[in-house]
Design a protein around this nucleic acid. Structure first.
Length: 517
RNA sequence: GGCGGCGUAGCUCAGUUGGUCAGAGCACACGGCUCAUAAUCGUGUUGUCGCGGGUUCGAGUCCCGCCGCCGCUACCA
C-alpha cells in the first residue's frame, strides 16, 4: 500500500471553528477517505496552532492562563471535527512536548547549517497595540486601530536567511511542475519569489508563550516558524527515521490561499535549509464567500460582535458549521461544501445554495431513488433484494463513472467526482422509468431490474462515502449489506455483481426529507 | 504602478493542441408515469460566447486594443 500523507493547516485557536475552516477540513477529509478507498496507506492529520502573543492576550482577556485557554479552545476543534465526521488519524497541538522537541531539533539544524543569524528588526510600532505595522497599513501615518502615532522601534531577533533561497526555490519549482496547484496559485508563488526575497525575523523576545530557542534562552520562535513544522512532528521527524522517510515523500498539504506565502515560499525554503526535501505537493484552495444573508441567528457564532445588527454584513467566519450541521445534517453540509465549490477558486456559500443542492441532489435524486427501490422490492419481491442482472446496461455506466470519479479525485476536484456519481444515480432512475417494474408481475424480470437498481445503490454508497460516510453506511444497511462502505476497496468493490441478493431490504423514512425553503 | 486571472443561456459553470463548440446542471414550459420525498422520466425555449479590430478556408478557442471585475505585491493564524 503506497503511503499518502495529507494535512490540513493547523488552525489558530483564537477563535471557534467556522465554515471556512470546516470547508478546508471537510475537503481534506473527503480526499483522505477517497485515498483509503483506492487502497492507499493514508495518514491524515489536522490540529491547532496555539502559540503567539495573541493567545496570551486572549487568555488574559478571559482571565485564564495560555495553557488553560488553549486546552479549551483546542478542544472545540476536536469536538467540531468529530461532529463533522472528520477521519483524521492524528491531531497535533503545537503546545505538545513532541512538537517542541521537533521544532528545536529542526531549527537547530537550520541554525547549524548557517541559515539563521542574529539581526535587528526595525519596524513601526504602536504602543497601544503592542504590534508592528508596515507603511501601507498606516492611516495618515498613524495606527489604523488607535489612531495614535507609531514609533520606530528596534528589536533584536534571529532572522532566517530566506534571501538565500530565491534561486533554489525557482529551480525546485521548475523541476517539480505540480509542486503547487492549481497553476494560478503556482504562478502567484513564483511571482512572489521573483519579486525578491528578504530575510525574515523568526523569533520574539516580548513574550514567552512559544517554543524556546535552543541556543538562546531569551527568545521564543515566532508562531509561523513553529507552526509549519507540525507537518514534520506528526510524521515522526527525528524520532522514527524509517517512518519519516516513508511518509515525507508522500506529503500533501491542503491550504487556503491566505497562507500561500508561508507554505509555498517559506516552508520549502525552510526544508531546504534543514537539509530535507520540500513536501510532495501543496494544493491551494480559494475562499468561501458569503452569498445570501438568509441565515438564522442560530447559525451565526455566538458572541460575535454585531450579530443581530442588520447593517453588518455576515462574514464566513461568523457562521457556525455545527449549527449548519444541526440545521441540515452533517452529510448534507459536507456535500454542499464539496459539490458546490470547485476546489481552487473562490466560491459562494449561501443558505439558498445549500437548500437548492439539498433538494435537487439529495432529496429528489439519491434519497428518492432509495425510497422507490425499497418500496417496489417490498411490493414485488417480498422485501428480499434480488441479485443484479449481469447483462444490465447500468454496469457500463458504473465503469464510466468509476473512471471519471477516480480521475477527478486525483485532480483535487471533489465536485466533479460527485457530479459524475450523480450521473449514475440519474441513469438508475431512468432505467426504472424505462422498465416500470411496479407494473410487472413478480418474477425473474422484476428481480433483474430491481437487483440491478440495488447494485447501483451499493456502488453509489461506496462512491459517495468520501463525501457522506454516514449516508453511505445507511444505504448499505437499508439494502441489506453487512459492513461499512468506507471499508470497501476500489476498483474491486465497484465491480458489477457485488450485491449478493437474497438479503432483506429495509423500507425506511426518507433519507433526506425535502425542504420547503 | 508591476505581475497574474476572469468576463459563455435567468442562475452556477464545462468548453484539450482553432473546424458537430454553441454545451451541462439548476430554474422554466409542455408531455408521460403515478413505484417514489408534488419526487421521477422524456422533449423543448433562451445566448451577438464582455466590446472593437486582426490572422485564417474557418475563432469562446490565436494576436492587438478597449471596457468591467478580481487576486498577489512579505513578517496578519
Amino acid at each position: 500500500m503506497p503511503p499518502y500523507y495529507l494535512t490540513t493547516p493547523i488552525y489558530y485557536v483564537n477563535d471557534a471553528p467556522h465554515v471556512g475552516t470546516a470547508y478546508t477540513t471537510v475537503n481534506a477529509d473527503a480526499l483522505a477517505r477517497w485515498h483509503r478507498l483506492i487502497g492507499d496507506d493514508v495518514f491524515f492529520v489536522t490540529g491547532t496552532d496555539e502559540h503567539g502573543a495573541k493567545i496570551v492576550e486572549a487568555a488574559e482577556a478571559h482571565g485564564t492562563s495560555p495553557q488553560a485557554w488553549t486546552d479549551s479552545t483546542s478542544a472545540r476543534f476536536v469536538e467540531a471535527w468529530k461532529r463533522l465526521d472528520i477521519s483524521n488519524d492524528d491531531f497535533i497541538r503545537t503546545t505538545e512536548p513532541r512538537h517542541h522537541a521537533v521544532v528545536q531539533e529542526f531549527l537547530q539544524r537550520v541554525y547549524d547549517n548557517g541559515f539563521i543569524e542574529l539581526g535587528l528588526y526595525t519596524g513601526l510600532y504602536c504602543v497601544s497595540c503592542e504590534d508592528y505595522y508596515t507603511e501601507e497599513q498606516l492611516v495618515d501615518g498613524k495606527c489604523p486601530i488607535h489612531g495614535r502615532p507609531v514609533v520606530q522601534l528596534q528589536e533584536e531577533n534571529y532572522f532566517f536567511r530566506l534571501s538565500a533561497f530565491a534561486q533554489p526555490l525557482l529551480d525546485y519549482y521548475a523541476s517539480h511542475r505540480d509542486f503547487v496547484r492549481p497553476t494560478t496559485k503556482r504562478n502567484e508563488a513564483l511571482g512572489f519569489i521573483r519579486g525578491g526575497l528578504e530575510d525574515v525575523s523568526i523569533t520574539r523576545t516580548s513574550f514567552r508563550w512559544g517554543v524556546p530557542v535552543p541556543w538562546d534562552d531569551g527568545h521564543v520562535f515566532y508562531v509561523w516558524y513553529d507552526a509549519l513544522i507540525n507537518y514534520l512532528t506528526v510524521a515522526s521527524y527525528g524520532s522514527d527515521p524509517a517512518r519519516f522517510a516513508s511518509l515525507w515523500g508522500a506529503a500533501h498539504h491542503l491550504i487556503g490561499k491566505d497562507i500561500l506565502k508561508f507554505h509555498c515560499v517559506w516552508w520549502p525554503a525552510m526544508c531546504m535549509a534543514a537539509g530535507i526535501e520540500p513536501p510532495a505537493e501543496i494544493f491551494v484552495h480559494g475562499y468561501l464567500l458569503m452569498g445570501g444573508q438568509k441565515l438564522g441567528k442560530t447559525m451565526i457564532q455566538a458572541g460575535v460582535a454585531g450579530v443581530g445588527d442588520d447593517a453588518r454584513r455576515v462574514r464566513i467566519t461568523d457562521v457556525s458549521p455545527l449549527a449548519l450541521a444541526d440545521e441540515f445534517g452533517v452529510d448534507p453540509l459536507r456535500y454542499h461544501l464539496l459539490r458546490d465549490v470547485p476546489l481552487g477558486g473562490d466560491g459562494d456559500f449561501s443558505y439558498e445554495g445549500i437548500v437548492s443542492r439539498y433538494n435537487a441532489d439529495l432529496a429528489n435524486n439519491l434519497g428518492n431513488l432509495v425510497s422507490r427501490v425499497a418500496t417496489v422490492v417490498h411490493s414485488k419481491c417480498g422485501g428480499v433484494g434480488p441479485a443484479p442482472d449481469a447483462a444490465s446496461t447500468l454496469s457500463d455506466r458504473v465503469a464510466e463513472v468509476l473512471t471519471a470519479s477516480s480521475e477527478a479525485w486525483s485532480r483535487w476536484a471533489p465536485h466533479e467526482a460527485l457530479e459524475a456519481t450523480w450521473k449514475l444515480i440519474g441513469a438508475a432512475n431512468a432505467e426504472l422509468e424505462g422498465t416500470e417494474p411496479w407494473k410487472m408481475p413478480p418474477g425473474p424480470e422484476v428481480d433483474a431490474v430491481l437487483g440491478s437498481a440495488l447494485e447501483v445503490l451499493r456502488i453509489v454508497a461506496v462512491l459517495v462515502s468520501p463525501a457522506m460516510p454516514g449516508t453511505a453506511a445507511e444505504i448499505w444497511r437499508r439494502i441489506g449489506i453487512e459492513g461499512d462502505p468506507s471499508a470497501a476497496r476500489l476498483p474491486d468493490d465497484a465491480a458489477w455483481g457485488g450485491y449478493p441478493g437474497g438479503v432483506p431490504v429495509v423500507k425506511g423514512e426518507p433519507l433526506f426529507p425535502r425542504r420547503k425553503g
